Amino acid sequence: MQDADKGEAADLDGTNLRIGIVQARFNEPLTSALAKACIAELETLGVALKHIKHVTVPGALEVPVALNAMAQSDRFDALIALGCIIRGETYHFELVANESGQGVTRIALDHELPIANAILTVENEAQAWARAEEKGRDAARVAVEMANLLEDLS
């Protein structure tokens, strides 16, 4: 078993991993950019396209419902949540950001399944575009690393 205190590298070998991705369609150009970067990075890490299940849902509040169905299927080593919530003039931003985040976390803990949360919460569209590609790649790396870690810990 690796000891993180010794500074050992993360296990980013995605070979034979099965990854589920749930993408919110709200702010679709941004979430599609997240998904494109995420899937490309998963492939770079060795995850076969045939082992990636990518589904879309209307918005960030629906992401946890689809994640839960995927988690219950017991077909995935890790899941990825993709979305983009841009602050508006009302309290709705806080509600959607908080509830979607809580839902993602609850599903990960309830099912003991790693979920990389790449639901962006930003002030404006420019901030979202500045983060989309890197956060998509980050989500892929987190999913693979955590799937491998949990396998090592079991």
Rank of each mutant, 00 (worst) to 15 (best):
R75C: 09
L113K: 13
R106C: 05
V96A: 07
G101Y: 11
Q72I: 07
A118K: 04
A66P: 00
L61I: 08
A97K: 12
G101I: 06
L113A: 02
A78R: 05
A71L: 13
A66H: 05
N98Q: 12
G83T: 04
V104T: 06
M70C: 04
L67V: 03
A108R: 09
T105L: 12
A66W: 01
I85S: 01
I85H: 03
D110E: 15
I107V: 15
A118W: 03
I86S: 10
V57T: 13
R75M: 13
I107W: 08
A71E: 12
T56W: 08
I107T: 12
H54S: 14
E89A: 13
V63M: 06
Q72M: 14
V55D: 12
A116P: 02
G103M: 09
V96D: 08
I107Y: 11
E99G: 00
R87M: 10
A69T: 07
A108H: 06
N98K: 10
L79P: 03
G88C: 14
I86E: 12
F76R: 03
I85A: 02
N117R: 14
T90W: 10
V57C: 10
E99S: 08
T90V: 09
R87Q: 14
V96L: 08
I115H: 03
E94I: 01
G101A: 14
C84R: 00
G101P: 05
A116W: 03
E112A: 14
H54T: 07
F93C: 10
A78H: 04
A60N: 03
S73F: 06
A118M: 09
P64C: 09
E62R: 10
A97I: 10
D110M: 10
N98C: 01
I86R: 11
E94M: 02
A60H: 02
T105A: 11
H54I: 08
G88N: 10
L113P: 00
Q72S: 14
N98V: 00
L82G: 09
T105P: 00
Y91D: 14
E89L: 03
V63R: 01
A78I: 00
M70A: 06
N117G: 15
A60W: 00
L67E: 02
A108E: 11
I107C: 09
F93L: 08
A97D: 11
G103Q: 07
A81N: 05
Y91C: 01
A118N: 08
A116N: 02
I107L: 10
D77R: 07
R87Y: 02
I86D: 12
R75S: 14
A118I: 08
G101L: 05
R106I: 05
S73A: 15
N68V: 04
L113N: 00
P64Q: 06
T56R: 12
A116I: 05
S100G: 02
V104M: 08
A66S: 10
H92Q: 07
P58A: 14
